[in-house]
Design a protein around this nucleic acid. Sequence first.
DNA 1: TTAAGACGTGAATAGAAATTCACAAGACGA
DNA 2: TCGTCTTGTGAATTTCTATTCACGTCTTAA
Lengths: 220, 220
Amino acid sequence: MLRRLTEEKLEEILEAGIAEFGEHGLARTSMNKIAARAGISVGVLYKYYEDKESFFLACVKKSIRELDRTLSETIQKEESLLQCAERLIEALQRHCREHPSHIRMYHELTSSGAAELSPGLAQEIEGVTARLYSGIIDKARQEGRIRQDADPGLFAFFFDNLLMMLQFSCCCDYYRERFSIYCHAAPEEMEAQIRAELLKFLESAFTVDKEHIIHTNQGE
Amino acid sequence: MLRRLTEEKLEEILEAGIAEFGEHGLARTSMNKIAARAGISVGVLYKYYEDKESFFLACVKKSIRELDRTLSETIQKEESLLQCAERLIEALQRHCREHPSHIRMYHELTSSGAAELSPGLAQEIEGVTARLYSGIIDKARQEGRIRQDADPGLFAFFFDNLLMMLQFSCCCDYYRERFSIYCHAAPEEMEAQIRAELLKFLESAFTVDKEHIIHTNQGE
DNA sequence: TTAAGACGTGAATAGAAATTCACAAGACGA
DNA sequence: TCGTCTTGTGAATTTCTATTCACGTCTTAA
């Protein structure tokens, strides 16, 4: 039986690829398995994509598109840094629930399997959020809402680190295990609490009104 | 020429394995290449180790041992949370400089290539630090040095997330790229600044004396 | 209705790498 | 010095999978 591939089928194939890449990583994922999972033959994959690598890139692009949509729906309004953070965390938690394999694939792509692709991918994936977060934080600083001596780039970097690890901890085996070592529960059982505590942490980290700066270097 | 393997040679072989695993990940690393890199024949690898997986585990064990040594030398004293953090950051930055391939291998091990190993490894690797950090933070909380409503487990988790990303950002290609997107420089060019800013971030996050808790949930 | 062209199929090919094993080289006791 | 045991060697085997290609099926235009 031979069916011309529809637009939806093509999306399905990408989704199958994302799932497999997320489960096994670029190196260990078999094109034959992807085809089987998508219910097509291997050959057709090579009609649409040059090779495994470009298929992988297409999967990543699709995934980026969906994440960007989620994010841009989330951060439109004029909001305070923390309101923004709260919405972001919520959105990412939802994204983890709905597209865990996307996050897993994203994690795989940071590993050495995709070494040659790193430079381009990092730029494409992180570029948007980096500018976004740095901008938000810089604005907050200029408005005097966070400490004046904070470096916006690095603070944005720390902020994104926390969000990224949040996602990995929800979706990736190793990090799920690690989470449960810290918290004795699976992340999906305490989504609200995680969100609340992360907000507290960020709230403290970002808030400026301290009377007493802790004395780090007073020795024993 | 045939030389009986010495204790040092065995360590060298593990070090070669760590380097290869760090560069290519578990799946893409070839036992033949490891042997060549270590200057021995493949066969002998299989005399000492059951298969690739157990060799990988031996490499990880060696790496854990060295990290544990670094950490236990670092956190012995009775110190404040932030002093402790500062020492930790310094120690980890040094560790990154001296053993980048260990960090790379650690990162590879969190990816799906080592899926079956995840549970055991996570426990072994994270168990110690998790208890350590949670303990330090819990103590600080009981002494009233950080906000009372903080969950020690989650705060320790966030703390470790930041430290872990710091290491990846120094040693792993993708994360190095990502770092430079945020900060427009390579991490080794601004080690001191990173340390200082991360301390500020943590200092703020952990410090308790705030008059005004930011109003997160007041709506628009 | 039909024939050319377009597209999907999946068995076959080729290459890479894990693992094995028959053999060789040193160690050691007599 | 000799024979045996231990241990390292690396070519050969096996397995896995990316990629190809000769073929069959559908579409479509006349």
